[in-house]
């Protein structure tokens, strides 16, 4: 369960002022966040992830009030409870597929890289159709394959919440559906919640709920 109440956030240069009176996402829900460019969709994801701190209001994720955590706690919370999937994949070019998937375990002390984790990474990659490309450099993969790797990386720590920022924005129509299917299936497998920013209205019917951030309206 994610609960946002009386949230107010603005950048120092006042380029964006975001206000959210009340907003909730149920556990396991797949919610699409839409709205015009500059309306604050990515900012809201960053606030939920604890990357940004609101000036006012509360953000509660599971039983944790993210906005009240210190820097280190927020980082630990983020790496344990949140999986990020980006539009441009943001894979590490100098690591091969398996190392990219395992990367969150190598850059933080909050997660321990054990043989079980490695095995789970292989299984996850195999489920995403990447089982035979574990040691391939990521710059030799297609966009669709790179996004699959990015999804594996996001899901490996079994996060409670997956934040997808235009996760299908760089993919061709055929791959868009495929990747979204894989993302939905994996999220469902893990019992995680999905909050996805998208501009692609063709994909909206697949989500449980769609929220237009500009209008503050939601529809099922």
């Amino acid at each position: 369960m994610i609960r946002i109440e009386a949230l107010e956030f603005s950048y120092p240069d006042a380029s964006l002022k975001l206000r959210v009176k009340s907003f909730q996402i149920a556990t396991g829900e797949k919610l699409a966040l839409i709205g015009p460019s500059g309306s604050g969709k990515t900012t809201l994801l960053n606030l939920v992830a604890g990357i940004l701190l609101p000036q006012r209001g509360r953000i509660q994720c599971q039983d944790v009030e993210v906005s009240s955590l210190g820097d280190r706690q927020r980082r630990d919370f983020r790496i344990r409870s949140i999986g990020f999937v980006f539009q441009d994949f943001q894979l590490i070019e100098y690591l091969h597929v398996l190392d990219n998937i395992l990367h969150p375990y190598r850059i933080t002390g909050a997660l321990r890289l054990t043989p079980q984790v490695r095995e789970r990474a292989r299984t996850l990659a195999a489920q995403m159709g990447m089982g035979d490309k574990l040691h391939r450099p990521v710059d030799r993969l297609s966009h669709g394959e790179q996004q699959r790797v990015a999804i594996c990386r996001a899901l490996l720590p079994s996060p409670a919440l997956v934040l997808a920022d235009e996760a299908t924005g760089n993919l061709d129509p055929c791959n868009k559906g495929l990747i979204l299917d894989l993302l939905f299936a994996s999220v469902a497998d893990q019992g995680a919640t999905l909050l996805a920013v998208t501009h692609d209205h063709d994909l909206l019917p697949r989500f449980d709920r769609v929220v237009d951030i500009a209008e503050g309206q939601s529809r099922s």
Binding site: R75, R78, F84, H103, T108
Partner: peptide
């Protein structure tokens, strides 16, 4: 910077980035 920003968003601390 882009790589470092990604690491930071994933949950990596500045100290870890400095350590890398």
């Amino acid at each position: 910077q882009r790589e470092i920003h990604t690491l930071f968003r994933i949950g990596c601390s500045r100290f870890t980035i400095a350590r890398l």
